[in-house]
Design a protein around this nucleic acid. Structure first.
Lengths: 232, 232
DNA sequence: CAGTATCCGATGCGATACTG
DNA sequence: CAGTATCGCATCGGATACTG
């Protein structure tokens, strides 16, 4: 019986595609490459993936030698880490992302909005350097989104950023209001804070200092710098 | 109803994976990037893919703006070509292949032997330069392979290489005999002609001049130069 | 040569619930 | 928190045959 899975080709592209191009796999790798290590941390990056499938994929990647479970002696779960082979997948993931950023219609991306995902990504890439050296709280509101996901808080303190989905109760330094599409476009590098404010798609209220450097503290998508080569 | 296909993520990696990581797609792109343009030419590179699916994939890639049908005015079929977006997929395919070459166990590749595929690849990458400036015919024999795929001929003339599965009848300059595994390993850069001959895994009979430069006229896999980083 | 049409089967994966 | 267990369906794609 000829192997019905698999391509039956010795070519390295075929071999690699066989193991990497299964559903969700590349996105799990993206999360690991971005630094996630715990099961539920990875899950936040792939919220539509069922835990069963995530578990399966992680075991597959482990069998492949791409992921290793951090063994800490005790029996308790200790997270996942990329092996050297896994870290070497960075060029694969980033080349694919860069191509997507260059050539895929932005309306495609912008039809897949997700506030939790966006905020989670923003938390990860936020750059505290331009912010005043104290605790800074920024409240994001997406008026059109259902109540449960409408408001988010980023709390920056001691160069650490926390994301809250419920009001942490701190004084808010900056209120950011605009639709999710606009905020996502900014994060993807498709527009800028300045342009969005000028078009009245985004409203910044509160501390002028924090507002004025938003484009800098707001770390963007890793692919935001990729020059787009398709019109839309 | 939430889109059950698709990842529901705006991330460019997700968008790209959605369209590129479907079965056979990357291999079809590999063929196009390698220069194939006609339907049946592509098919030779993906022999286990059904024509129906190949046709479907080509139409999907066309809709994506990655492939364009060469329009030659007349109604007759005129082949497929990559657009600029398609040519820009080269880094994606080659990064993935390079990773596979570096990190996947060679026994994995070498369990997917296919004489037709190997010969087709060899035909494509053969380098006529070191060969004498006349017609050169090389006969390959894989003794362990079933009769129908056992013997192959590469005919090099005027810097063009033809592959024959039936004896073309020319005088043979060089007879190459060895098992398919050995020849595939050489083509993938896992061993060399010299080493295989020394181990008596490969036998070269005929014109010494042609035999002695085999390692050079035999163009290797595009990934043969990639240093392997896994032991096996 | 360059594909289409049709059918059907395996299985991948989504959904949900549950456990240490 | 960190997964496992189970179920069932949709759909992807393989096989085969056919057409302009």
């Amino acid at each position: 019986m000829t192997n019905t899975a698999g391509y039956g080709q010795f070519c390295p592209v075929a071999m690699a595609a066989e193991v990497l191009c299964t559903r969700w796999t590349l996105l799990v790798l993206r999360e690991l490459l971005a630094g996630s290590t715990r099961f539920n941390e990875i899950r936040r990056g792939v919220p539509r993936m069922s835990p069963a499938l995530l578990s399966k994929r992680l075991r597959e990647l482990e069998a492949l030698g791409v992921v290793a479970r951090a063994a800490d002696g005790t029996g308790q779960p200790s997270g996942y880490a990329l092996t050297e082979a896994g870290r070497d997948l960075m060029p694969v993931v980033s080349t694919m992302g860069a191509w997507g950023q260059r050539w895929l219609k932005s309306q495609l991306s912008l039809s897949n909005l997700d506030p939790a995902l966006l905020m989670w990504d923003m938390r990860r890439s936020l750059n505290p350097t331009p912010l005043p050296p104290r605790r800074v709280t920024i409240e994001f509101t997406y008026p059109e989104v259902r109540a449960a996901s409408r408001c988010w808080w980023l709390v920056v303190e001691d160069a650490e950023t926390d994301l809250c989905a419920v009001n942490p109760g701190f004084d808010v330094d900056l209120y950011v209001t605009g639709d999710l599409r606009t905020m996502t476009a900014i994060w993807m590098g498709l527009t800028t804070v300045r342009a969005a404010v000028a078009q009245q798609l985004l409203t910044l209220t509160g501390d002028r200092v924090v507002a004025d450097c938003m484009q800098r503290w707001l770390g963007l998508s890793p692919f935001a710098g990729e020059a787009r080569r398709i019109a839309d």
